[in-house]
Amino acid sequence: MTTTRQPMRDATQDIRTVQPTGAPPNPWQVFARTAGTIWSNGKARLGLIILAFFVLLAIFAPLIAPYGATENGFDRSADASPEHWLGTTAAGEDVLSQLIWGAQISIFVGLVAGALSTLVAVLVGLSWGYTRGFIADVINFIVNLFLVIPGLPLMIVIAAYLSGGGIGMIIVVVVITGWAWGARVLRSQTQSLRSRDFVTAAVFSGERPFRIVFREILPNMTSLIVGSFFGAATAAILAEAGLEFLGLGDSSIVSWGTMLFWAQNSNALLTGQWALLFAPGLCIALLATSLTLINFGVDGISNPRLREGKQR
């Protein structure tokens, strides 16, 4: 492009560049600033607080829960009482204790499946964005195929073939169906970054493609990757709960999904035990909301226009 362009400016940036002196920020400061940006967003702050609550609940479940998760022998299908704040299940287990222990499964699945999906998305997205020609077209087709094939039905079918696989199976299924979206987002960002002059300049500096991808391009996509992690974790938590609710997971473990599975199978609707229906679903919804809320702050890092503040 050889069009003359105005020396860099636009109407809103028509101010002298401030040139602070002193030491450059080290990685920790960058991290702190990123975290600060997220924290400064009211919605994201609420999300972080909710997430922290559930993480602490999961870690300290053995200390907090009044009873064991599968400890039965209490009155069956009892209503709330001082001993059992949320009542008991049809099998005579304490609902509150199950709820607290159940946090472990959701958070574990969310973190692991979210991280694995993101890892696949980063690897596919970056290499796909950096290659051109026929191979890129083939990957494009495969990713689009994974995007249009409806996830949950595919999960159900795979889970049906792999019947009784437990948590591991659920994670695998969630990752298989969940990586494509992130890959597409990261690919288009990689493509836009690779056409930037600083990437061409890195080629001129004698850098190898591997280093260009991981040292020049990848660090410029941090917020997108963080965002796609939270997105994938949210989807994983909801998918895991859905599969377990359908009885396609291991229904002997205690998780929020299986609690609802047993609640429905033991006709909690008819017995009127609303706490048993209400509480696990609310926990899933809150945990998933917290991740969505955090993403409001993450969006603000990558796209300053989305930052909070009155605009008009």
Binding site: A263, Q264, L277, F278, G281, A285, L286
Partner: peptide, 16 residues
């Protein structure tokens, strides 16, 4: 953000 985090089956159970 809150509503899109509702699991489908939970909304269904509550309404039901």
């Amino acid at each position: 953000a809150f509503m899109s985090a509702f699991p489908y089956f939970w909304t269904a159970l509550l309404l039901l």
